[in-house]
Design a binder for these strands. Structure first.
Lengths: 209, 209, 209, 209
DNA sequence: TATGAATGAGCATTCATTCAT
DNA sequence: CATGAATGAATGCTCATTCAT
């Protein structure tokens, strides 16, 4: 039952201690790549460790289960996505653009960029709808930030917003839907057009009067 | 679980030839029920046949694989959904309501009803994004019908629609997002409110001039 | 993740439905043989199914786990052992032998036979001391029967027995110890001698006055 | 469990060179404790080294394999047990008690004490009967000493012993059986009673004439 | 048509052991 | 002496699919 070290004629003992500290990230990267290529359910722990050039046992040194790896990947995605959007919005704001609709456009642009570069990944990761994956949306930081933007615009009198939460959700999902559609059509280059549609539509919807 | 080797005088009253041709539908129903209860991945062919009071072999008489059953379930869902929406919209139209915005509201109401009654099922079925599940959206009949409505309204001069396809997608996903959010919050009774938000928002977005 | 039936060039499909109903017993037999040969811990489910000329999946058709197989083996052992002893004692009794000491000798003979033919098996099976394996002894039917014999002899005035339970235990374990010793020495042919020692010793211990 | 990749400035106060030479005993102790608590098979080398506050590698500095550790534990047990019994018997002898039956009682008392304090440990250690664990009994020093006692008593004419080896075995296992039974019943306080049963029984069995 | 016993590849996870540092 | 990251063979169990009846 022990290891019985690879029987008599064991081949070369493989290099030990390759990189210094990267192991965990390497496994995360390999898993992400494979999940994207073959699907989550179709990717085994073995596939992952093979791709990461690491032994199977090593996997369990860094993750206590396959499921934990998925969790880590989700966390990494959300973090990365928020950072991208924040950074992009911040950049625009800094570049002197002004006006609420301009800000909204900045938002759509940043999010669309963030999303379209990673929709596949997003879908992959947030898919088993049985546990509370839908719950995540309830406190989705993106939605929360969007609500804040809407309320600020409303407070300034620039927009009329009856229900900022519902509006934020419509915006987010409109964008998500357009991104998905573009990807399904294989058209991933028309981002400007999509942003224009979003901005026009919601600017009209927010117009006071 | 064991064999209980057909104990000599097995006087089991095996119910032969239950229904005449319904077998396929029974399997579909049993699968749908179980998928909803336990999740797609967690439901085995055995679970399904057991629930359908049918032997395992019978399953493969009606479906060439587990995957095909899933496909059939998806198809059945889309068909049923379209019929519900059509019927509901038709009913409203017949009831004498008029005006484009009223029609739009009828749409939102019908779809939201159709969706909220079955979001779980929808999510369940359209979740493994790897095969061409996203592709389905490309020619989603719902979207197509919505586009037609938008174009008709635009042609009549009631609405201004720069890109009916994009607009239809935004509408559909806005509604989907609001439905998901309501479900995540456990609030499934505020459909009128949701419809109002959608109708107001998109009426504004479509307002000419 | 499915079976993907042994890829394209699948070899011969193996004979199906070999014996009619024996499967469970075949697995039990194969397991017993291997446990005896290599030890319980060193025998895998795979070893067992291979020895039983059955596929791995078949194992789980008849046993819900490896542990259950062990339980079934234990049960089978106890049943068989009791039957052997009962039969042998009955035979002697029928053959007209009489006297309490003769009965006791009959007991020792029957049990020693039963045990020495299967000590290895017994030890193998009743070894993981962590669950209540020791508990089994508490209500061991063999001990119970022995107690009854002792009490009957005492009631008839033939023996003096201060504590029939303790005495039965001493007898049983004395015999077990002698059997083990004989086996350890590789001397399994001296059963008569062992029975004589047991009978003499305990006859003396039971002598009234 | 993860790597926590030696976080740059790892200022962990690694306790170096704790005890001087005790390492081996600490491992033995930790293993014994864990084996008792969770069972031999359920205790991994890792559990042991963790409990001994020692790294995994260190284990193999003191033991060439897990199996060797088990052997060392067995040896330690037997040695300790013999010493206890010897000491106890010596004490009684020194205290002026005399008579062969008194000596025999002293023996039973000492062994029962020794055993009942450590049955769990004994069982744990001597359980996988596959290697020559049964063989140990062949030259078990306890049995040997008991034989010597019996022969001395016989030589003095105090006892009649036809087969001292067999008698020693019966005594040892009778006692073992009673101890197990007492433990199984949760009655560990009736040692005096058990000793009386043993002494009475075997005194009668050894009575000359 | 219908059955269900049989199949076997596949999977997640464990753990004794090694060895570069 | 001591460490602990890395290894990889081995294990128990699942399940989609087949096929003799």
């Amino acid at each position: 039952m022990p290891a019985e070290p690879s029987g008599a004629t064991s081949a070369a003992p493989r290099p030990r201690v390759r990189a210094p500290q990267s192991r965990r990230a390497e496994l995360l990267d390999a898993a992400e790549r494979l999940f994207l290529q073959k699907g989550v359910a179709q990717t085994s722990v073995d596939d992952i460790t093979t791709a990461a050039l690491v032994s199977k046992g090593t996997f369990y040194l860094y993750f206590s289960s396959r499921e934990e790896l998925l969790g880590a990947l989700r966390e990494r995605f959300v973090l990365g996505f928020c950072q991208r959007v924040d950074a992009a919005v911040g950049r625009r704001a800094a570049s002197g653009e002004k006006g609420w609709n301009a800000r909204l456009r900045a938002w759509f642009t940043a999010m669309l960029d963030g999303l379209m570069d990673q929709v596949m990944l997003h879908d992959m990761l947030f898919h088993d709808p049985h546990p509370a994956s839908r719950e995540l949306m309830k406190d989705n930081p993106i939605i929360v930030q969007l609500e804040a933007l809407l309320e600020a615009g409303a407070a300034s009198g620039a927009w009329r917003v009856a229900d900022s939460h519902a509006m934020a959700i419509m915006m987010f999902h409109s964008m998500h839907g357009l991104a998905d559609d573009a990807i399904a059509r294989g058209v991933t280059t028309q981002r400007a057009r999509i942003v224009r549609r979003l901005a026009d539509t919601f600017a009209a919807a927010l117009r006071p009067c």
